[in-house]
Design a protein around this nucleic acid. Structure first.
Length: 580
RNA sequence: CGGUGAUUGGCGCAGCUUGGUAGCGCACUUGGUUUGGGUCCAAGGGGUCGCAGGUUCAAAUCCUGCAUCACCGACCA
């Protein structure tokens, strides 16, 4: 590609609304442009990288025995009503009507469509197992799109769905996908980890996420310092403390804390460590009957208590049998109905609702909590003496230094960008949609399913987060928009340079390399800066002074190392240097 | 969804307090100059000042409403 005939669209300055480095660089390098919140146009350079990521994903999926299909992005509401997700997925699901006033959604995922397909097409156990995938645009109406294509509303995803007669068969495909994902992210040149994950609203039991490690990541991951254990913090179990609760020594007192607005101020005001303070949250209780009204004030509440220096873990909390899922905070009106005033200063003493205490808060003695009265705090509080009816559970996030639940080492927390997620779904969708086949005994049997996603467009942002420097992007060879940048110095002044450049361009292109030939009438500094910003991994500079020795300069973008190459050897040298 | 802030040429910004013919840098066009790290000089082109309404002789500027965008939060006693 000749840059004079291409659309480079590079920018010197950072656009004001970009926050993370990948977003800034994608805009500056001319990979994407924002259309509206969470919606992006891919410019030619962006598309080239997108297609390369797609290619690697496709190759490895095919190799792992998956078969490509393509499903519609627009889906009819009936399917979503069948699985109940028309109601449950709520605001994230973009709904609209066609000209006949029929309801549709823009597909955020395709379990319903693929299950509908399979129940029609597959009738015998002999056709199983099957693993079908597509690479397609998804739309999720994110409450807060951000970080450019990292959390966009419209994005490119590889989603695969497998169908089985038995759990063993599902486990085999699941393992194969785990291996395929490992190969994909390795080929993409990413520093990643597979971690134990929550299956969330998709459903199912067993699940792993694949995270690219980066400080800008939105997820926290807990690692053991001395084993392979790695889990999303949502799932990392906090072991109960081994220490026993000390005996109560203080008496219960109420103190006024008028000026304390934060936990730290409160702790200082009471001369306590924040670890001797507990915080209490009121949430909705789980209803046995499904259609219980949840909007009136008669809703049942539950108090959740954790140490003030810990964080409540939503995922753990909503899995507790007493707690409503999804986790729903009590409204001011509901708190007022319970306590007589809409205070935010809540504590478990004297509460007329079930109390669930985190293990580490339950070993505190002589601690402090809210007095259920504005600006007042109880001190010298003790379990069993002051609060008799409560139960213990693990409802907090692990923190760095906690004992690892695998039994070996302590936990360390790092941040990650979720680029892949695999699930064992079980029969959640096949049961709801009656997707079964005839088994060997001639009986209808509901299928068991797995599903496997990769955020193709997100991978690009994640790769940049891990691969950049002060000059711009540093692409891994496998996903660079171009492999080689050919940079002639002052070509328009020298026919010698021009001839050498043209010849090299033809030779490299004929040898199958993807070359960006910077034939613009620009000064050298402009070309260097643009090619570095773009992140092209291999640069070849043709200059008058080296041409006398029949040499060109080779520069490696990542290492910055430079060396001279004989012009006749360039194609052979590139063959050994460019990774494919 | 809640809070905060922003919206002036393709990008980054000033001007608004105190109303009076819309400006700067980058980018773009033309000519010259320079040529191994974003040269320099000169001349140009390009803006319904987010939208609607109001106040006023006069609104980018003051007032009202709306829209869009960004950031923070959505465990906090």
């Amino acid at each position: 590609m000749r840059s004079s005939q291409y659309l480079l669209s590079t920018m010197k300055e950072n656009p004001a609304d970009a926050e993370v480095i990948s977003h800034k660089l994608m805009l500056r390098a001319g990979m994407v442009r924002r259309l509206a919140s969470g919606l992006y146009t891919y410019l030619p350079t962006g598309v080239r990288t997108l297609r390369k990521v797609e290619r690697i994903v496709r190759e490895e999926m095919n190799k792992a025995g998956a078969i490509e299909v393509l499903m519609p992005m627009v889906q009819n509401a009936e399917l979503w009503q069948e699985t109940g997700r028309w109601e449950h997925m709520d605001a994230e699901l973009l709904r609209f009507k066609d000209r006949h006033q029929r309801d549709f959604v823009l597909g955020p995922t395709h379990e319903e469509v693929i299950t509908d397909l399979i129940r029609r097409e597959v009738t015998s156990y002999k056709q199983l197992p099957l693993n079908l995938y597509q690479i397609q645009t998804k739309f999720r109406d994110e409450r807060r799109p951000r970080f450019g294509v990292m959390r966009a509303r419209e994005f490119l995803m590889k989603d695969a769905y497998s169908f089985h007669l038995t759990q063993d068969s599902l486990q085999q495909t699941y393992d194969a996908m785990y291996q395929a994902y490992t190969r994909i992210f390795t080929r993409l040149g990413l520093d990643f980890r597979a971690v134990i994950a929550d299956s969330g609203s998709i459903g199912g039991s067993v699940s792993h996420e694949f995270h690219v490690l980066a400080s800008s990541g939105e997820d926290a991951i807990a690692f053991s310092t001395s084993s392979d254990y790695a889990a999303n913090i949502e799932m990392a179990a906090a072991l109960p403390p081994s220490s026993k609760r000390p005996a109560a020594s203080a008496s219960l007192q109420k103190v006024a804390t008028p000026d304390a607005n934060t936990l730290e101020e409160l702790a200082a005001c009471l001369s306590l460590e924040t670890s001797h303070l507990v915080k209490t949250v009121l949430v909705h209780a789980h209803h046995d009957t499904e259609d219980n009204a949840t909007k009136d004030n008669s809703v049942q509440l539950i108090a959740l208590v954790v140490r003030a220096d810990h964080q409540l873990n939503h995922v753990k909390a909503e899995k507790h049998p007493l707690v409503a899922s999804p986790l729903t905070l009590a409204t001011d009106e509901q708190i007022k109905a319970l306590l007589g005033s809409a205070t935010a200063t809540i504590g478990p003493v004297g509460l007329k609702v079930p109390v669930i205490v985190d293990h580490s808060a339950a070993v505190l003695a002589d601690f402090s909590c809210g007095a259920n009265e504005d600006s007042h705090q109880l001190v010298g509080v003790n379990w069993d003496r002051d609060i008799t009816d409560y139960q213990q559970a693990d409802i907090r996030n692990v923190v760095s230094g906690d004992a690892s639940p695998c039994g070996s080492g302590t936990l360390e927390i790092k941040r990650g960008i979720e680029v892949g997620h695999i699930f064992q779904l079980g029969d959640k969708y096949s049961q709801a949609m009656k997707a079964g086949v005839l088994n060997e005994a001639g009986k209808n049997q509901i299928l068991t399913m797995g599903c496997y996603g990769i955020g193709v467009s997100r991978i690009i942002a994640a790769a940049i987060e891990q691969n950049h420097d002060e000059y711009g992007i540093i692409w891994p060879d496998t996903i660079a928009p171009f492999q080689i940048a050919l940079i002639p110095m002052n070509m328009h002044k020298s026919t010698r340079i021009q001839q050498a450049a043209e010849q090299l361009y033809n030779e490299l292109t004929a040898a199958g390399f993807e070359v960006i030939f910077d034939d613009r009438k620009e000064r050298p500094g402009v070309m260097f800066a643009d090619m570095e910003l773009l992140g092209i991994p291999h640069h070849i500079v043709i200059g008058e002074r080296n041409l006398d020795q029949q040499q060109v300069e080779y520069k490696h973008r990542r290492s910055g190392s430079k060396e001279m190459l004989d012009i006749a050897q360039v194609v052979a040298e590139m063959t050994t240097r460019v990774q494919i």
